[in-house]
Design a protein around this nucleic acid. Structure first.
Lengths: 340, 340
DNA sequence: CGCCTATCGCGAAACGTTTCGCTCTTTTCT
DNA sequence: AGAAAAGAGCGAAACGTTTCGCGATAGGCG
């Protein structure tokens, strides 16, 4: 049905090789150029990507593999990457995991990588669940470029790209905001302890405290197993009567969960308790929570950029070296912190 | 590098045809089965999808084409479809438009369809911007199954699937909630008048009013050109001093925009003004807005289901008839409506 | 004028599958 | 036992590209 390169060859009296060359930007006599263009117009020809892919051993797709798609952070990143990658001519094969449990997710992530490999994606952008990076070994063997986002995998650092935010600095920023306001009894909520990001943020928290020469109360620090709303809810609940005058919630889920507890307890913010969150939905009508804002768009752009550059390098047989890009997060002040 | 069917043939002493047949579920002598399985194990073989796609004239991808990815409604749908479609063995090629203006979006949508066609997707799931459906003519000619979500395109009704919600009923539900509470002066915010969904919701609103035998005040009704937060903000602003005792905001953006205005005006909900919204972020800490909730997961599941069924039918040479599925939305009561 | 070099075009093989039509073997039925 | 039917396997062609290596044509130069 659809026209092929063969049809163009017949119509123009040229050979397959010549048509192919022209299509791919090669040089051809002016009159042949015209003839080919005309034939392409008439037949409404467009190259068959499947055939091209077979020959070229590529697929024209980039896999985008995320642990979930249920919050604004992920959404913004997906949106940006999807767009930038597409503008570069690649398709985006989206894989967002569905499991809620950590161990299940890890298993699911491995399966997803297999799926993407089977689909033959040319590259993978991944916000990893498996922090050991075992799931990435196979694509790495196959020489498929990988760009990690949000988390670095240390053992793979020399082989994969990564675009992360300065978690230590970000959390230091958030902590300082409370410390500057005079708070010392801070209920500090972190993600699970085996989570890279959570650990870095804890580090930033400790840094900030120690810089003031004070050792935070361990009793007020909790690492939530679930880093979602439920986790934040439970964690905050357990700290409700701890005497803390401020709350530091170090990710989006924890923040929403914690806020809900405070609200249900009838506490008023910031009069009864000050709050600094992460990625707090700043978009809602109502009280604005002072919160660390991650540069999601930038993360997406940079990840896409690196990936496309890698892909171009591979196509041209050039070499490339994995990059690490660290982006800075900013603090957006709302009205949730009161000087003590 | 990677093993091919040829390698398996050599190792087992069988022919290409036989290996292919076995791989695709055909019958083969028990001892050959074993031999093939062994060879596959040893060589870590897996079929080359590019080659298979070329031969079979398919790509193994479904295009998912949305006007944007910047709200929970879209996110939930993407998430669900992505998952279900993947479980059926297809990849999802995500295309979310970036334009903010209507006309630009329509142009962008056409381009996106071209992109997906070029990529050779096997089917397209689309929340359409171009309500005339012109952008879908080409894939339709090419016999690519199409599933519309959220909006039906009447002129294409016999050729495409559609899964929509009962907009009329949903808006009637919302309106009744205010009417039942005794409100008669309702500031009613709708999307642009050339928008299918907006019109249906307006219809539902009018239905509900007329059923009570009263004709709503036209002055209190506005069709916002922008159906986002900004649109809601402007629209509400223009109605602030209209004397309305209640607000009906008929989509997510309008709802947030309107709420912001009320908040800034220092009005308290529901004491000063009652509010019923659509897709109001019910997830936030703070006051719950009574709101219509769309069955996003269900929409996703049904759309994926229909698409995969279509694709299976095509693969097996079966015929299929386009379906229309209408889903019901529900009203979630918060504390934003007060009896007058 | 003749040689060297660029430039352009071509034929053919290759990428890794699936499938058609055929042969050969085995089973089933009468 | 013999014929028919069913089951397995095979060779070869096809899907639509890209690319290698070679021949031909034309232009530049001494």
């Amino acid at each position: 049905m659809a026209a092929t390169i063969k049809d163009i060859a017949q119509r123009t009296g040229l050979s397959l090789a010549t048509i192919s060359k022209y299509i791919n930007g090669g040089n051809v006599l002016e009159k042949n150029k015209l003839a080919i263009d005309a034939a392409i117009q008439e037949t409404n020809f467009s190259v068959n990507e499947a055939a091209r892919n077979l020959k070229m051993k590529r697929s024209g797709y980039v896999g985008l593999l995320l642990p979930a798609l249920n919050n604004a952070f992920m959404m913004d990143i997906v949106n940006k990457i999807q767009y930038d990658v597409r503008m570069a001519g690649f398709g985006v094969a989206l894989c967002c995991l569905a499991s809620t449990s950590d161990t299940e997710s890890k298993e699911e992530e491995k399966k997803a990588v297999k799926f993407l490999m089977q689909k033959g994606v040319d590259g993978i952008i991944n916000l990893p669940m498996n922090e050991d990076g075992a799931h990435l070994l196979e694509p790495l063997e196959a020489n498929i470029p990988i760009t990690l986002i949000d988390k670095q995998i240390i053992t793979l650092a020399s082989r994969v790209n990564a675009v992360v935010i300065d978690n230590v600095g970000a959390c230091r920023l958030a902590t300082d905001e409370l410390l500057n306001a005079g708070h010392r009894d801070i209920a500090a909520l972190f993600g699970a302890q085996d989570n890279y990001t959570a650990r870095r943020r804890y580090e930033g928290y400790m840094d900030a405290c120690r810089q003031r020469g004070f050792e935070p109360n361990e009793k007020h620090t909790v690492f939530a197993d679930k880093y979602n709303k439920a986790g934040g809810y439970e964690a905050m609940k357990s700290l409700l009567h701890s005497g803390a005058t401020a709350v530091l919630a170090t990710n989006s889920g924890l923040t929403t969960g914690a806020l809900r507890v405070l609200l249900e307890a009838g506490l008023s913010i910031p009069d009864d308790v000050s709050v600094v969150g992460f990625d707090a939905p700043g978009d809602q009508p109502g009280k604005q929570i002072t919160s660390v804002l991650q540069p999601t768009e930038k993360i997406g752009t940079v990840a896409a950029e690196i990936m496309c550059e890698n892909l171009r390098a591979i196509a041209q047989g050039r070499h490339f070296v994995p990059q690490l890009r660290t982006l800075r997060a900013s603090l957006v002040r709302g009205s949730s912190v009161q000087t003590k």
